[in-house]
Design a protein around this nucleic acid. Structure first.
Length: 198
DNA sequence: TTGACGATAGTCT
DNA sequence: GACTATCGTCAAC
């Protein structure tokens, strides 16, 4: 089942971040279907979150998509090398989003390995936001894309993830955000080798 | 297993 | 002109 627009328009971005664990992010570009299970996410809570591109309602050409209603992709280039994929949540003009940090490759693994320039599947193939976008072929060309398909969508495949399996940790790479850098808004599935260790 | 560090380019001040 | 929601490699432990 493809997650509907109403799912993304949920007002609680922390809940969505946790609920996305165990869901399947799918892409189909040029007829090539690839996908993986989401095992690690981070929440970004727009206006009051110093770590967010939309802190204090900052609105630029780059982050415009964050102000759309939930259910669209926000993709940007980081450190000049890596594409970062986010799911936009909440209603129009409330810039909340979930960054997808790590996936466990499941569908189209041979294509994923080719994109990642790897010989065989190991834990590093989908670990980290830059790696997971590369694995699924996502670039800034897919910024502002609908998550209802046909290019990008997220499926619920009935993979149960209990509350006890979810670990909350501080987010990564946002030291500039001062006290907000300590907020435990990174979530991962405990023990899953495709998520960040520890 | 952990830690330092360079690569690289778009965006904002 | 400075900064960045990172990754892979290499060296030391």
């Amino acid at each position: 089942m493809i997650l509907p627009p109403s799912y993304y328009q949920n007002p609680d971005v922390l809940w969505v971040s946790q609920d996305l664990l165990g869901k399947f992010l799918m892409t189909k570009f040029n007829g090539i279907l690839t996908g993986g299970m989401i095992v690690e996410t981070e929440a970004y809570k727009g206006p009051e979150d110093r770590a967010s591109h939309a802190y204090n309602m900052r609105r630029t050409k780059r982050n415009e998509v964050m102000y759309w209603r939930g259910g669209y992709s926000y993709v940007y280039l980081c450190y000049g090398i890596h594409y970062i994929f986010n799911v936009i949540t909440n209603i129009e003009d409330i810039p909340h989003g979930v960054m997808l940090r790590s996936i466990e490759p499941v569908v189209g693994i041979d294509h994923i390995l080719k994109r990642r320039n790897k010989q065989k599947l190991d834990h590093s193939v989908g670990r980290g936001p830059g790696s997971s976008t590369q694995a699924l072929g996502i670039t800034t060309a897919h910024n502002g894309e609908s998550l209802q398909g046909p290019l990008i969508w997220i499926e619920d495949r009935n993979m149960p993830v209990s509350k006890e399996q979810i670990v909350a940790l501080p987010r990564i790479g946002i030291d500039y955000a001062k006290e907000d850098a300590l907020l435990p808004w990174r979530y991962k599935i405990a023990g899953n080798p495709y998520a960040s260790p520890r």
